[in-house]
Amino acid sequence: MNKYISLFLSLSILSIFMSCEDVIELELEDSSPQFIIEAVLDMDQNNCTVLLSKSNGFYESTAINTVNATAITLTDADGNNYDFSQETDGRYIAENITVAPEQVFTLAITDEDGQTYTASSSAPYPVALDSLEVEEFVFPFGDEENYRIFINWVDLEGVDNFYRSKIIANDTFLVESYNIVSDEIGDGEELRLPLQEFFEIGEEVEVQLQSIDENSYEYFIQIEEVQGEGGGNTTPYNPKGNFDNGALGYFGIISTSSKTVVVEK
């Protein structure tokens, strides 16, 4: 709904006044690099991947600035430890991890300065994606044909479930188009959600429905808010994940269910 309102408001601005958009040179202060951790324990692959990086200057063109750790340990509630091996710079993996719902894992990472960051998460209950539905959507203006995709699934009753949907359209992962929902909208009910994207005829769309832990949910809700914004409209801030000692990023546990559809009339 909020999106509809902003759409209407911006349309009215744009259409009445000949507003103009251009790229400008704006000097930005460079902050000291921050430590970023992206750690995901995949219940289906039985592995845990860790990506460590430092933030870049805003105009720096390097895609990602990886850094290495001096120690990484993953511990489950029974005290079992899993060892990580380094794949490439800043990328680590631990394998052969069996995960059951509600099982708690703790990840500890020590950076090159000797600072240790710790986060815990509880494994979610895996929920399967039932079906994808394609539906035509007519914009209020113009006559382009657009299609929306709805995801249908049945929520697991009696437990708190959190979901994140991801879209891979024609083999491209759409990094900013995802939904974050919790089963507050209907515990144990049949859920139906439109993807945050419009598609054209012939597109092959893979949709992943990830069951995620509550920490990841809280983190991605914040990420969604700061994404694509900046300077002016909202109050900008840095999303806080579940790591201590001020590390940015998160440690989450996921289970993925996916389906593919080709958009047709």
């Binding site: 805003f58 900008p236 998160y250």
Partner: peptide
């Protein structure tokens, strides 16, 4: 408030 840096989370 302008950004003073950037980082990536799940590609974004």
């Amino acid at each position: 408030t302008y950004p003073s840096g950037k980082y990536y989370i799940d590609g974004a």
